[in-house]
């Protein structure tokens, strides 16, 4: 742009963006305010500045005890961490091999396989809740961490495969071809050459799976029936109900749950978009 628009237009544009930023920040500020204000009700004034400060809500959140006196929040946070980590590991591990096959090999049914992964990705897991409930029940995996990890992993696989494939497609093939001429097996090539090169892609995929598992609530609340197995989203969602709402607890929990994941997200968001659209464009 060689010409600058008029001053009035420029000021107007800046104001518009500032207003939008305020609209974006307002709900967040309300939640932060609620977390530091006493009481369970959502206070009546719309101002985002807290009137009284207290740490009661956080104390209540961390201090909730179960029927055997154990500290539930720590337990539930641990559940969330374990489940999210396990999902990531299982999901990425299962996906990187499949993504490699779809990227490097040509075999009949490859196109169908690709389409299947795309189609399955768009199928919402909420539709499978009931049959999954029956399947997990028969396998004895209801109300168990293993069950939830397995379910989340299969939700994560299609996305991981799709993104990793796009990433692998972008890797140069010369190294692999040289290694094949030297007589290396496909598995060796995969382990020693591809995986190290693909580290950034793997990292991003892993982190997106982690975030998806960390933020999931409806499957967790349907499959887990005892409090010691709840994950953080279930805890937070259960503090706001139609009949009894504890917004203070909710706000404190929301902050504690979101801040770590937001930090990670901020660090990685530029890779995420690249991965998403690259996979889509090339797939």
């Amino acid at each position: 742009m060689t010409r600058q628009p008029r001053l009035a237009t420029r000021i107007f544009a800046h104001l518009a963006v500032i207003v939008l930023v305020m609209v974006v920040l307002y709900p967040v500020m309300l939640v932060v305010k609620k977390a530091f204000e006493p009481g369970r009700d959502f206070a009546l004034s719309p101002s985002p500045i807290p009137t009284t400060l207290t740490l009661d809500n956080f104390r209540g959140l961390f201090g909730t005890q179960g029927s055997h006196g154990e500290y539930l929040f720590v337990r539930q946070a641990l559940n969330s961490v374990v489940i999210a980590l396990a999902t990531t590991v299982v999901g990425v591990f299962l996906s990187c091999t499949a993504a490699y096959a779809l990227s490097r090999f040509r075999f009949p049914g490859r196109k169908t396989g690709l389409t299947t992964f795309v189609v399955v990705q768009m199928f919402p897991s909420t539709l499978l809740i009931m049959p999954l409930y029956v399947v997990l029940d028969k396998l004895g995996l209801l109300n168990s961490i293993t069950g939830l990890v397995l379910v989340y992993s299969t939700t994560a696989i299609p996305f991981c495969v799709w993104t990793l494939k796009g990433y692998f497609d972008g890797l140069p093939r010369e190294l692999e071809e040289a290694a094949r001429i030297d007589g290396a097996s496909a598995w060796l090539i995969f382990r020693k050459i591809i995986l190290p090169l693909a580290r950034p892609g793997l990292a991003v995929t892993a982190l997106f799976s982690f975030m998806t598992a960390w933020n999931e609530f409806i499957l967790a609340s349907t499959f887990m029936t005892s409090e010691s197995r709840y994950t953080l989203p279930v805890l937070i969602q259960s503090s706001v109900g139609e009949f009894s709402s504890q917004y203070g607890l909710f706000a404190a929990g929301a902050i504690v749950t979101s801040v770590p994941v937001m930090a990670v997200f901020y660090v990685l968001q530029k890779y995420l978009v690249g991965g998403l659209t690259a996979g889509a464009v090339k797939g």
């Binding site: 591990f93 499949a98 490699y100 096959a101 090999f105 075999f107 696989i157």
Partner: peptide, 8 residues
């Protein structure tokens, strides 16, 4: 190829 696809 199928071997790689198998786990997923």
């Amino acid at each position: 190829a199928l071997g790689f696809l198998a786990p997923a």
